[in-house]
Design a protein around this nucleic acid. Structure first.
Lengths: 349, 349
DNA sequence: CTGAAAGCGCTTACAG
DNA sequence: CTGAAAGCGCTTACAG
């Protein structure tokens, strides 16, 4: 049989007190009641296995103790990692996580947010999908005083809350590493589909290159689809040219395998034939023979620029808690510094 | 200002009909009402941006159109991948995914399930944490006729629903591959913390080894903690012994990096000095120099046994839909075959 | 056929 | 101080 969950009324009848009394005692609210009755209520609740119906409570309180999270992608380790930390954090504050996957499509994204809103989530954390389609929609939500924050990706100058990596700074630091390796010329490999954070990376490279008088012109920027095939094709063009004192800047770790595939074809190695730096540790899924072969191109590990996921999650957690409790609704726009993970040039790998 | 969402009553007042009429029209339920009024209702709902409050609906219907998912781990690519497919599937059926992370701890697991239940999820998909602590609890839930299914991990002979990989069959197939490579002796590297699926793997190896008269005794089973250090230490002991015609069977992909570290230290290579097969494509997070060095131990890619994640998700999806709609509550215990991903021995890697 | 009213399980303002 | 009653936003059995 479908067992009915016990509710306040059941306890009230059992103990012979009002439902109000039960509610107040169980929630630790002030109420004058005999010690004996109080204990009886608590004992009975325990015995019957009472646990409050959060749906009813949510309807009554207009608060559900839940947070909606929308991310564009679960196929790298980046968002799952972010999700995991966020879930642990929120759950420690008693919040339930509702996740949605937009698959980087603004239409999906919007539908998912509508659903989350119809489920009365108390707050929304969104790593927005590609494009600017939903900016006005986000503004509406934020202006409705719903707790709202963008994570990882943002939009500049739109007055939306965000917590992201300082991509410009990180990219600049990466150029510094290349310069230390004697690079005199940078080739930038980026995604064709643009968004603010990766534009910031490009800006960071351009500005730091200028500051250090490293050659960097428009012809040195290559944009590509991120699938391995396309990235590989683009890289074959890059690697076909002159590579003397060249550092290749990878806008994201998704582009690496394509680069390695192309290098392998041409018999080139890192760092012997060119230098590399890029954003975020990449993961290799060692399922296919070709992967091993391509990884061999890396004769010595290069440095990486890593986003501070833990820091972002920490910041989001703090923001949610403060925003959810108080009515404070001030603008929050934070950029967290990226970190350099050094390779080991000069040592034996 | 915190904008109030529009509700049925608002529409009813605006159009001057009963709330009942609005509800029925909007839900496409049979109602005799003038074409004009009907259109007015729909138009008004649209204009005011009405969207039903799922919390209220959930309370009234005792159904929330939501599914709770509890997984033990988000740090490999396995569960995120599973989560992603599941979320896409469920969302296509109009179900919201509530996820929780037990961190492989039964106490967390139980707390999370309590929370999910208090949120009136319609169903529960659980990849159970280590140990058997919650078996009785799971039984209670399943017997209460709540839609309930274990995924990826299960308990034999307990009458609980599950959809998992046929680990015994997969492991046996793996032994076949090793045999084809001329292996005459198997060393089994497994997790110290046991559960049913990995026990099945061990059984599969044992039975297939016996069938093929491949040496496999208790001394050839090594159990270890799964962290890289511990696995490495265990593997140093293994690799210190005789390795002639030896195939190492890896119970899970988490053990690989330890094996590679140990092999590198000892100057051993695959397949020159020993053979390997194991469960699931492993991922390498290429952040640290040592990872590259250790991966070089693999001179030629070995074969892998892969679980059919897409198949499991498909099966779970089908089960949920049928169980949620009908009152059919029959026992579901399915094992999906594993697949071999061939390495490329004999070719140049 | 139709719409007012009950009720899902809570919390809390308010009448006694 | 206390507990009955209202109300959160829905759906649907039921009285008219």
């Amino acid at each position: 049989m479908l067992v009915k969950r016990v509710c306040l009324k059941d306890i009230a009848e059992e103990v012979n007190v009002s439902q109000t009394a039960v509610s107040k005692v169980l929630n630790g609210l002030p109420i004058r009641i005999g010690q004996e009755k109080r204990e009886k209520i608590i004992e009975t609740a325990q015995r019957l296995g009472y646990s409050p119906n959060m749906i009813a409570r949510g309807l009554r309180n207009q608060k559900t103790k839940s947070i909606g999270i929308v991310i564009p992608d679960m196929s790298t380790l980046f968002y799952p990692e972010l999700l995991r930390s966020l879930e642990i954090k929120l759950s420690s504050y008693g919040y339930q996580t509702l996740i949605c996957n937009s698959e980087d499509d603004p239409v999906n994204e919007r539908e998912h947010i509508e659903t989350l809103l119809s489920r009365s989530v108390d707050g929304l954390v969104v790593a927005p999908a590609a494009g600017r389609d939903n900016i006005d929609y986000f503004k509406e939500i934020q202006e409705s005083r719903k707790t709202f924050v963008l994570i990882d990706r943002y939009f500049a100058g739109e007055g939306l809350n965000f917590i992201v990596t300082d991509n410009k700074q990180g990219a600049g630091a990466g150029v510094g590493i290349l310069a230390d390796q004697g690079v005199a010329r940078i080739i930038y490999l980026g995604n064709r589909v643009r968004n603010q954070p990766i534009d910031d990376r490009l800006t960071g490279v351009r500005e730091e290159a200028a500051r250090r008088s490293i050659g960097f012109t428009t012809e040195q920027i290559f944009l590509t689809e991120t699938d391995r095939e396309s990235a590989g094709a683009t890289c074959r063009r890059i690697l076909g040219g002159n590579l003397k004192d060249t550092g290749i800047f990878l806008e994201s770790n998704r582009l690496l395998m394509g680069l390695l595939d192309a290098a392998r074809e041409k018999g080139l190695q890192i760092p012997d034939d060119f230098h590399v730096i890029g954003f975020d540790p990449f993961i290799a899924e060692m399922a296919y023979p070709a992967d091993y072969a391509s990884l061999r191109v890396i004769r010595q590990p290069f440095s990486l620029i890593r986003q501070d996921i833990a820091g972002m999650v920490q910041a989001v957690g703090e923001y949610l808690v403060s925003s959810l409790n108080k009515q404070s609704n001030r603008l929050l726009q934070r950029m967290l510094p990226a970190e350099i993970i050094p390779g080991n040039y000069g040592q034996d790998a």
